[in-house]
């Protein structure tokens, strides 16, 4: 596949279109912002009760725990924790056979969908991330950093987390080439992802082996690590270690996606007439 500046411009344009597609549905976005905010309030109350009972749980104080809740809610749609990512569309296209249209284009399938998902994630990060977080910061006492450097470090970790999240979701989507109906795999992936990313409870709360395992799995890149970067847990070489960990998982997952993609397009039947 040819690369170069022309290709970069194409994928940038694809990402921009991905952003615009989601921006089209304003009512759905508003409803989503409302849902994220309500869910954030419920989760925040639960965490308040938990941290009142066990102060300093997982090394977080109350404000840090609440911050974790609202970061989780603001990343929820961007990382497609419970679906809503481009992989659903890709899966549907494989099932219906519309994938044929994608395959006869002179583009790389994985880069194409990565660009599209990046555009989608950017929109969701602004629309369904920023507003609930602002609401959370107004209503609750959060431990948000004042230094712009920490915010930049956080957004970098979020971007790498999105790459990891896409890597996982792309593998899930490609399973539809063999299973045709990938809904079951999709649901399993959300469940595992919800738990191991820290969407339900921060991973540092889990003791012993479970916690150790959870922290080295790729899902920790999606929420736990970015949240910890924002909370100032990782700085200096520790921060570089976080990035290296995320990059390594992203590279491994994307490489696996490429391998599976070439296997899928080589041997699998494109559905429909």
């Amino acid at each position: 596949m040819a690369h170069g500046p022309g290709r970069a411009a194409l994928y940038a344009a694809v990402a921009a279109k991905g952003f615009r597609r989601y921006a089209t549905y304003r009512a759905a976005t508003l409803a989503g912002i409302f849902t994220n905010t309500v869910f954030g309030v419920i989760l925040a109350q639960t965490y308040l009760a938990l941290w009142a009972e066990r102060p300093g749980l997982g090394g977080y104080d109350q404000a840090q725990a609440l911050t974790f809740v609202w970061i989780g809610q603001s990343l929820h749609m961007a990382v497609a924790a419970m679906g809503g990512g481009s992989e659903e569309e890709l899966m549907e296209r494989i099932r219906s056979g519309d994938i044929a249209v994608d395959l006869y284009r002179p583009v790389d399938l994985q880069l194409w969908w990565l660009a599209q998902d990046a555009g989608r994630a950017c929109f969701q990060l602004f629309a369904r991330g920023a507003l609930p977080l602002a609401f959370g910061a107004l209503v609750f006492d959060l431990a948000l950093p004042a230094s712009p450097g920490t915010w930049i470090a956080f957004l970098t970790a979020v971007a790498l987390g999105l790459l990891v999240s896409f890597g996982i979701r792309y593998l899930v989507a490609l399973s539809a080439f063999w299973l045709l109906d990938g809904a079951g795999v999709g649901q399993l992936a959300w469940l595992v992802g919800m738990f191991f990313s820290g969407m339900m409870l921060p991973l540092n709360v889990f003791p012993g082996l479970l916690g150790e395992v959870a922290r080295v799995l790729p899902w920790s890149s999606i929420l736990q690590l970015p949240a910890d970067v924002l909370l100032g847990v990782h700085t200096g070489t520790g921060l570089l270690g976080v990035y290296a960990f995320q990059l390594a998982w992203a590279a491994a997952l994307l490489a696996a996606g490429r391998a599976l993609q070439s296997l899928a397009t080589r041997r699998v039947v494109v559905q429909g007439g």
Binding site: L10, V14, R21, V101, G272
Partner: peptide
């Protein structure tokens, strides 16, 4: 080559027609 599958579309469902053409312009 150009391909038209009557029962499928190469156009982007949620976007104006012209947007699809602009992408194709870059793609090809």
């Amino acid at each position: 080559i150009g391909v038209v599958f009557g029962q499928r579309t190469t156009l982007w469902w949620d976007l104006p027609l012209l947007d699809s053409y602009q992408l194709i312009h870059r793609m090809y």
